[in-house]
Design a protein around this nucleic acid. Structure first.
Lengths: 132, 132
DNA sequence: TTGAGTGCAAACTATTTGCAACTGG
DNA sequence: CCAGTTGCAAATAGTTTGCACTCAA
């Protein structure tokens, strides 16, 4: 996903500030929120540029990205709770046979003041075909 | 997410067939793939209708949905591997303080022929504010 | 001076929706 | 018959990209 085919980076006030914002908050802001926050300082800032810089920062490994968008929803006829393996080579998604750990929800509840209803666990790597 | 505000459902050949397809495969097809597969049987079928029916089936609890799309990407200045809690009430995302279980990757590798690079674990529920 | 960065607008992709016609119970 | 379902096309929403201009090294 985050290849290192980008060769050289220069400094830019915008990118520096985006990184600063992300390093100084425990929020997990969206691109739009970052954009809004920066508009006061850079009135001409464009949202496209925020996206560009976020991608560069991810590429550089300086931030990480929690993807909830940009790809496909997948549908599953099996409604029992189970975990998935996602191949980063071919994109295939496989059900995993390891047991569902309901106890994890409890563990989180013990450490927080949240009510936990369910969790989602996905493993990423290469499937048999893509390993060869 | 999947409220039960939908009152009554009728049968439809299209929806029945979509469910059949999902129940009979271990793939995790996208809406488009299901659409393509059904086009031979229902040449006039529209993609919009596939989406509508998939949402209804999710609403009915007959299938489940692995969301990779449809919402926002979130960015995180903390690149150490850690888990997240996502509030289903207000959408806020919090870092969790429970330890990162690298051992899970090994466990999956022992049970499969896959190479596992990393995993992602998210808990869903209500945060303190939304509980009141 | 030169190629990385920028703003802008248009393009793209996945998904949703309004509408008039249709159909199953 | 009537509310749920459909196809179609247009609309949305988040993200990416082409282009001409700018700026940092």
């Amino acid at each position: 996903m985050a290849q290192n085919n980008h060769k050289k980076y220069r400094n830019s006030k915008q990118r520096t500030k985006i990184l600063e914002i992300l390093k100084s908050t425990k929020d997990h802001p969206t691109a739009v929120r970052i954009y809004e926050q920066l508009r006061t300082e850079f009135p001409a800032l464009s949202l496209g540029n925020v996206y560009r810089n976020l991608n560069i920062l991810v590429e550089q490994g300086q931030i990480s990205e929690l993807r909830f968008g940009s790809t496909f929803d997948r549908y599953d006829g099996d409604i029992r709770p189970h975990y998935h393996f996602i191949c980063e080579g071919c994109g295939s998604i496989e059900d995993l046979d390891i047991e569902h750990e309901d106890v994890l929800n409890k563990k989180v509840e013990e450490n927080t003041n949240y009510k936990v209803n369910h969790h989602r666990l996905e493993f990423y790597g290469q499937c048999e075909n893509c390993l060869q």
